[in-house]
């Protein structure tokens, strides 16, 4: 039983750590791309190119993307703090772990969740908004380098150099939306556990002789 719980705790910690790490990386990329799109939109406007609503819209979405990226990165780093310490406790010791070490790690995970619950809720929102923001940017930049002729039915690629940037933007959007889903699932599981802890408090109070306190 100890090994099973040990492996479950470890699997859960590893999964959450990977998602948070992925969010740190993609949060940083989101900031970089937000700045890049913003600068290119603004430079286009001042460089004598015609004033277009499309450029203003791209600049606005980029600015929102930059802000969300920053918030995304800071929130991810907050969650990562402490998570790696708990992971080290469980990972660096060979199974079977002493009962108290494993239970101690579970207590720390719960305390970590309680401490960062609000941040995780923010992440769910930021990741969803960021995902849609970067999805819009990816689509906008794709429109820029593809042109479609209705008369001949041909698709023309204006600049192949823009493809990696559009694909990366779409990848950021996908990771962001997937992270939002995973964070929601993680949060739901831990809220259930919190509920179970509340239910078991009476049994612990009785064992301590604290009655209904």
């Amino acid at each position: 039983m100890t090994d099973t719980i040990h492996s479950r705790v470890l699997r859960e910690l590893d999964s959450f750590y990977i998602i948070t790490l992925l969010n740190v990386v993609f949060g940083a990329l989101a900031i970089a791309f937000g700045i890049q799109y913003m600068v290119s939109s603004v430079l286009g406007m001042t460089g004598g190119e015609p004033f277009s609503l499309f450029r203003i819209l791209t600049a606005a979405v980029s600015m929102a993307g930059f802000g969300l990226g920053l918030s995304w990165l800071l929130s991810s780093v907050k969650i990562m703090n402490g998570l790696s310490d708990i992971r080290t406790i469980v990972k660096d010791r060979k199974a079977p772990l002493l009962d108290e070490i494993l239970t101690g790690a579970i207590v720390r995970m719960i305390a970590h969740y309680r401490e960062h619950r609000k941040t995780i809720q923010t992440m769910i929102l930021v990741c969803t908004l960021g995902g849609f923001c970067f999805l819009a940017l990816g689509i906008m930049s794709s429109i820029e380098f593809f042109s479609f002729s209705l008369t001949t039915g041909t698709i023309t690629l204006n600049s192949a150099l823009l493809i990696p940037s559009a694909l990366l933007t779409l990848a950021i959007a996908m990771v962001s939306l997937a992270s939002s889903w995973y964070f929601s699932k993680f949060s739901k599981d831990w809220d259930l556990r919190q509920g179970e802890i509340s239910l078991s408090e009476q049994a612990l109070a009785n064992a301590l002789g604290r009655g209904s306190q």
């Binding site: 859960e12 494993l102 699932k185």
Partner: peptide, 14 residues
């Protein structure tokens, strides 16, 4: 009680 938390709740993994 605390170990049971990992039995009763399905658990989160990638």
């Amino acid at each position: 009680l605390y170990r049971a938390l990992f039995d009763s709740v399905p658990g989160f993994s990638l």
